[in-house]
Nucleic acid binder design. Structure first.
Lengths: 242, 242
DNA sequence: CGCCTGCTTGACCTCGCTCAAGGCCCGTGG
DNA sequence: CCACGGGCCTTGAGCGAGGTCAAGCAGGCG
């Protein structure tokens, strides 16, 4: 593989692996697979025998109601494991869909389970990972439940940038965010038309640029205060803690 | 204690404990404490050294923005552990508040951690518990993000009843739900006035009664189909699986 | 070239919010 | 005992944020 082992990279963001842990994780074979946009990596109602790990591109967890209206619940960037919960929940409660063309890999439940048993620190790190995502869901409830449209869009962009930075996927205040306005509409619970107007508003205020799936934030602190964005819920260790 | 050990009850809903596991859990002393309505059991920004377990009454996880607007993110009934995530997340990202007068107990992180280490099945069960709550958060994003007011309220009531039943806190289709309309407003992202009108609507349709914190659902299947409620996201094992 | 997808704009409408007031119940104090 | 006050629920009236509908435009691709 050209790139370093993605699981090692994931764990090393949180802790320093022992030699034994490193070996055990490295032994997990990663077969990158390509998926076209809109492909369903995980389907609601199915039972999984493996977890997905995103290696490149953007994926999203969503649910669709009877009328076809889709609500996106989370975005997943490279390094994320969108359905890690399937390790302990028998049936999938949401879909995971490739929002852009994606590269991903599947890791067997059995592999992850024995890793957790043998190396408790790794188990704790994976548990923690699901808890961080849980915290992000909580913030999304707040976002769609109580913020007006402009703040709602702004908040989503702040979160995206902060997560991309944390994962080493940003260049200063620019990162990939290959979503259409329809995707943003699904994620914010706003209509497409209104998302469009909110983005224009943010551009007019010279807070962001957003073209061809590239997001740039021109004035981080102003955007944060507009959005009411505070990053504690992302639970990213401070630099000093690492 | 008059009642059976609440942790034993919690675990036994998911699995059959071995003698050793049972002894280890039983050894954990439960000191019930009383809290008046509106008391903050957990405060955002603090670091916890213990987890809360609700023994009686209703609690809620919520976040409050600068302007004082509160968004409730979850309700917790007796047997729930609202801040189990604090076991692996250093700083609290939300408040946990007594919504009615409550009885609760605190369990030291260290106690839970050593339990998880020594008895992996217990660790897995606790992990699973956090994942089920995570799934409920996902559904709440859908609820506040994409359901119109009437469905939104109806869905919340369906969820409440189903969870109460699962926890053995219901009598047929009646259960305690000691919330004010203001609390429902915080949970649904609707105004108090509109919650009031939606409740009246549901009562007029003879789907529910809801007085003095007692909820009765008169027509379960009609309320479910009105709400678009499907219970898979609650991940309650089928009777046959138990 | 023509089509399809995604972005943009304008006009209109509605669901749910805000503001305001009144009623009921209960706890507290005179 | 009654008076008062404070939650909480209820109702009405008006308004506005955001949805819906409709149309045009631009870019990419077969």
């Amino acid at each position: 593989m050209a790139y370093p082992h993605p699981l090692i990279a994931k764990f090393e963001r949180e802790l320093t692996l022992s030699v034994a842990e490193n070996q055990a994780v490295s032994a997990i074979a990663i077969r990158p697979l390509k998926f076209v946009r809109n492909y369903d990596l995980v389907r609601k109602g199915n039972r999984s025998l493996h977890c997905v790990m995103i290696l490149a591109g953007l994926a999203g967890t969503s649910k669709t109601d009877g009328s076809g209206k889709r609500q996106t619940i989370a975005f997943h960037m490279s390094g994320d494991m969108p359905d890690l919960q399937s390790l302990h929940l028998d049936v999938n409660d949401s879909d995971v869909r490739a929002i852009s063309d994606c590269t991903a890999t599947f890791i067997e439940h059995s592999t992850l389970r024995s890793l957790c048993e043998q190396y408790p620190r790794i188990g704790a790190t994976l548990w923690r990972d699901t808890l961080v995502h849980s915290s992000i869901f909580r913030e999304w409830v707040v976002n769609v439940g109580s913020r007006p449209a402009l703040k709602r869009v702004a908040h989503l962009l702040c979160e995206t940038m902060k997560r991309a930075q944390w994962l080493g996927l940003s260049d200063e205040m620019t990162c990939d965010f290959p979503v259409t306005q329809t995707d943003l509409s699904d994620a914010t619970g706003l209509s497409i038309v209104h998302v469009n107007r909110m983005l224009q508003d943010l551009r007019k205020r010279e807070l962001i640029s957003f073209v061809h799936g590239k997001l740039t934030i021109h004035n981080w602190s102003d955007l944060c205060s507009l959005a009411g964005f505070e990053d504690t819920y992302l639970h990213q260790p401070r630099q000093s803690d690492v």
